Amino acid sequence: MLREHDGQVYAPMHPEVAAGLTAEEQRGTWHTVRADFPEHAFAHVRGLSDGPGHARTGDCRNCAAHHLGSGSHEQAVRAAEDAIGVVTPRRPPAVRIPDSFFWPHRF
Rank of each mutant, 00 (worst) to 15 (best):
A19L: 04
V87Q: 02
S72L: 13
M1R: 00
G85C: 06
H44T: 03
T22C: 08
G85L: 01
F107Y: 05
H40F: 07
V17P: 00
E74P: 05
C63I: 04
Y10D: 05
D6I: 05
P92Q: 13
D6M: 10
P92E: 09
A43Y: 03
P104N: 04
G51Q: 02
H40I: 08
S70I: 08
G71N: 05
A80T: 04
R91G: 00
R56M: 11
Q26M: 08
A43F: 04
P98D: 06
M13L: 08
V86A: 15
R91Q: 15
V86I: 14
F101S: 11
V87T: 08
A94H: 12
V17Q: 03
S100Y: 04
H67F: 07
P92M: 07
P89N: 00
A11S: 15
I97K: 07
Q75S: 10
G71V: 02
T88Q: 11
D99N: 09
A11M: 08
D50R: 11
A41N: 01
V33F: 00
H5M: 10
Q75T: 00
F42E: 14
A79K: 02
H31S: 05
H40T: 07
W103P: 02
H14P: 01
E74F: 10
H105E: 10
P38R: 01
D50H: 12
M13I: 14
H54Y: 12
F102H: 12
G69E: 03
V33I: 10
R90L: 02
P104H: 04
D99P: 10
E39K: 05
R61A: 15
